[in-house]
Nucleic acid binder design. Structure first.
Length: 820
RNA sequence: GCCGAAGUGGCGGAAUGGUAGACGCGGCAGUCUCAAAAACUGUUGGAGGGCGACCUCCGUGUCGGUUCGAGUCCGACCUUCGGCACCA
């Protein structure tokens, strides 16, 4: 009997040895081709849960596989360390965000080390450290210089009782402040933006990168490009400078159907146009919509309401005067913040017109239309009617014709509008990278000169229980001198959105200690772009979208020579518990630590991969984990209990046959495991390894293959298993007397000839129903196969009294007889 | 409402248009044990039939279609999950 498999002993031993030997540290001087395998770095929330492991274990397995295949693999790890929860911890527990975050980093690093991954810890990146955020700030300055960063007004969630800005997640359902319960309103604040909209079209292109269609669609929807026209309506009010009101529409063909105009409540013309007798009503409405939370206002369930301003515009196409209303279903941030109301051909306008008794004029005739009133808006194509010179034109053609007409007359013309808005990066928070800008009463906005970076976060900022941004009241931080004129000046107190930090962290991994630049250009050139990026699909738009923009901006500044950071993207599914996402607030978090100490990291790694296809994810249920544990114990015993080939008795199957079978299964397994790893099919890869193990156990019992062949197959099993269960494989490799380390071994190759089946099961069907299976040589000829099938008793029973009208023969597969 | 993905045993899941249920969990029976656990062996989709080796029928969300043959392809629908959601 061999000693029992003790995972924690084995794992501790090898993790120590690998670390001492710096086995997984990588450099750029290798003759092997490079492979950059990146996993989304975790946010420093406290501990890693099983969901993190679900993201990390399979990607480590695949990185290890690439390493054994001969690549120089960079598979780094770090921490996304700025963000609101650290600040909340500071407020609620009186612990400094830095302390809280770094404690979490220590704990999470310990957990990550217990996973046994090939992370090169010498390249660790932590975004909240000055040596990192110095360069985040530096990038901000570069974007500012390039004209891609600007200041503008944007609404924030404002709690009137706490007198502070709230993040979206601090506003609870119904629009109340999470902390004090007061109704949250919106307030405009000057904030910093990145001009991501400049890249809107390019961000919809995915040429040369391998990203799932699903993510591409999500990102394209996010950009929300729509084609249509801008139309100018004539305004003529004494004392009002503007002589036109411009709207964007995708349906210029319906312009003759305009019976009213709607402005967003925030539209700058509202105040100017509102007639004195309507003033109170209009102001009340604006106040009301300001108070409403974003969620309420944008709810499609809400009935459309609005108020008349008392003003009118003229539709230049037909000279009609139509009333101007305001309504909160019109959004200031999209198009021009004004909409032409065509109730006959737009569902929202229809509802609005019905409510306020506004005329509904049909200008696109539905099929079979007799000139009667509509029951609902008709939004499909039709023939233009009531449209002057355009009558009789099909509406789809009308879109182009009317656009051209508008253009010719100077009333507007073709236009494209995007749903995408510029990226608002200002956060009224402490725990983020300070925006390196200074406000001088004489010079205006002045960037902090590069040599003064980083703008350090003051350590002694006071965290008031109100939750107000501590930087604003930190005098030593705020008060500075103007870099240009040396007069007293004030610092920007907003910090940057953490998506800014995560937009470039993978560049830093290539040269984490570079202190003269965000990265070393040569080392960056060696590693980038990332060959495979894996992570949760929840980042489909935000992170993955921002970072693409960021890299394109760097490319245009000449800082990098590629426009896409990630050559290939693969999203794994999520692990849920109790039918819900794992989260601390729900209290359904599964910590891997107990499973690791009880069963071993190798077991947890393999189990996570085994439960479902990786891209699917699923419910965490540990009832099946014993299957993996048993498998690894079987491998342990299989490898360590000595093998002895038996002398073959006369009547036993020949030694030769057993050997060929073993060879075939071995090579088939190599092929299957390799293909599955390439295709991220970890669950079937493990099934194949289990089948191989079970086969070897049987072969050992029978004992008819020569020692050398058996040993070779066992060694193959260990190498195939090395990425999945790195500790166990290393231990067994050593115990079999091989050199250290199995992880420096090359990946097994299969021989197509040896993997070929010699015999197959030929399926015989009658009218598509399975009637018999016959074992035949692969090379069997068609006539011979038919002969055998017709001889089968089972088949004969179903041919009784029938006439064979057709035979379908699929070599190596089946024979189907069609009878009547 | 729109976009996307998925529906297969008691459970997780497997299956280039060609043997449905690989692999594993659980169950059942057995070996070992004073006993239990662990481990190992066998068995395990449902219904019916045969003393038996076995045989027959049904079966991949529902209803149709294409095909010699459909879990897989096409159409309609139902359900679940994910994303977006008054974007003019």
């Amino acid at each position: 009997m061999v000693a029992r498999y003790n995972p924690s002993e084995v794992e501790k031993k090898w993790q120590q040895k690998w670390a001492e030997d710096r086995l997984y540290e990588v450099g750029e001087g290798s003759s092997r081709p490079k492979w950059y395998a990146l996993t989304m770095f975790p946010y420093t929330s406290g501990d890693l849960h099983i969901g993190h492991w679900y993201a990390m274990a399979p990607s480590d397995v695949r990185a290890r596989f690439k390493r054994m295949q001969g690549y120089n693999v960079l598979h780094p790890m770090g921490f996304d360390a700025f963000g609101l929860p650290a600040e909340n911890a500071a407020i609620s527990r009186g612990i400094h965000p830095f302390t809280w975050t770094m404690q979490n980093v220590d704990n999470m690093r310990r957990q990550l080390k217990s996973l046994g991954a090939i992370y090169d810890w010498s390249r660790e990146v932590i975004t909240c450290l000055p040596e990192y955020y110095k360069w985040t700030q530096w990038f901000f300055l570069k974007l500012y210089e390039a004209g891609l960063a600007y200041r503008g007004k944007a609404p924030v969630n404002w709690c009137p009782r706490c007198q502070t800005v709230l993040a979206n997640e601090q506003v609870v359902t119904g629009g109340f402040c999470e902390r004090c319960g007061a109704t949250v309103s919106r307030r405009d604040l000057e904030q910093w933006f990145f001009r991501i909209t400049k890249y809107a079209d390019e961000l919809m292109q995915y040429d040369g990168i391998d990203w799932s269609e699903r993510i591409q669609i999500m990102q394209r929807n996010w950009v929300g490009k729509s084609q249509g026209a801008d139309i100018s309506f004539a305004l003529d009010y004494p004392g009002v400078e503007e002589k036109e009101l411009r709207v964007f529409t995708t349906r210029p063909d319906t312009t003759f159907g305009v019976t009213f105009m709607v402005l967003a409540p925030e539209h700058p013309l509202v105040a100017k146009l509102t007639s004195p007798e309507r003033k109170t009503e209009v102001e009340d409405y604006i106040a009301l919509s300001r108070r409403e939370s974003e969620v309420e206002r944008l709810s499609t369930e809400k009935e459309k309401d609005g108020v008349f301003t008392g003003a009118y515009v003229v539709n230049r196409l037909n000279g009609e005067s139509v009333p101007i209303w305001i309504a909160d279903y019109v959004l200031m941030g999209y198009g021009t913040g004004a909409v032409m109301g065509v109730p006959a051909h737009d569902e929202r306008d229809f509802a609005f017109a019905q409510k306020y008794n506004l005329p509904i004029r049909v200008v696109i005739a539905p099929p079979e239309w007799q000139g009667g009133e509509l029951e609902a808006a008709y939004i499909d194509p039709g023939v233009m009617v009531n449209s002057g010179q355009f009558n009789g034109l099909p509406s789809q053609q009308g879109i182009a014709v009317v656009s051209d007409f508008l253009e010719a007359k100077g009333y507007g013309g073709r236009a494209i509008t995007y749903r995408l808005r510029d990226w608002l990066i200002s956060r009224q928070r402490y725990w983020g990278a300070p925006i390196p800008m200074i406000y001088c009463s004489d010079c205006g906005i002045v960037p902090v000169p590069e040599e003064y970076l980083p703008v350090l976060l003051p350590e002694d900022a006071e965290f008031r229980p109100t939750g107000e941004s501590p930087l604003k009241y930190c005098e030593p931080f705020v008060n500075t001198t103007c870099p240009r004129c040396s007069a007293p000046a004030k610092r920007e107190t907003d910090t940057m959105d953490t998506f800014m930090c995560s937009s470039w962290y993978f560049l830093r991994y290539t040269s984490p200690n570079c202190d003269t630049a965000p990265f070393d250009a040569d080392r960056l050139k060696y590693w980038m772009p990332v060959d495979i990026y894996t992570g949760g699909a929840e980042h489909a738009v935000m992170h993955l979208f921002y970072t693409r923009f960021f890299i394109k901006a760097l490319r245009d500044m000449g800082l990098v020579d590629f426009g896409e950071p990630f050559a290939r993207l693969f999203n794994q599914g999520i692990i849920i518990t109790q039918r819900q996402k794992m989260s601390k607030s729900r209290g359904n978090v599964i910590n891997p630590d107990e499973y690791v100490s009880e069963l071993g990291a190798d077991v947890v790694r393999a189990y996570l991969m085994f439960i479902a296809p990786w891209e699917q994810g699923g419910e965490w249920d540990d009832s099946g984990i014993s299957g993996i544990s048993r498998w690894l114990k079987r491998v342990w015993n299989l490898v360590l209990e000595p093998y002895a080939a038996r002398v073959i008795a006369e009547n036993k199957p020949s030694d030769d046959k057993a050997l060929r079978d073993l060879e075939r299964i071995t090579h088939q397994t190599i092929k299957k495991v390799t293909d599955d790893l390439e295709g991220f099919r970890f669950n079937t890869m493990i099934a194949a390894l289990m089948e191989f193990t079970n086969y070897l156990i049987k072969a050992k019992e029978i004992g008819t293959v020569a020692d050398s062949a058996w040993r070779e197959s066992v060694d193959t099993l260990l190498r195939l298993q090395a990425p999945t269960t790195p500790h166990l494989a290393e231990e067994l490799w050593q115990r079999r007397g091989h050199g250290y380390s199995i992880h420096n071994q090359s990946w097994p190759q299969w021989d197509e000839e040896l993997a070929k089946d010699e015999e197959i099961t030929l399926v015989v069907q009658v009218n598509g129903k399975l009637r018999d299976r016959i074992t035949v040589p692969v090379s069997i000829a068609e006539t011979e196969a038919k002969q055998l099938a017709l001889e089968s008793q089972r088949v004969k029973a179903h041919l009784e009294g029938k006439e064979i009208i057709k035979m379908i023969y699929v070599p190596g597969r089946l024979l189907n007889m069609v009878v009547r």
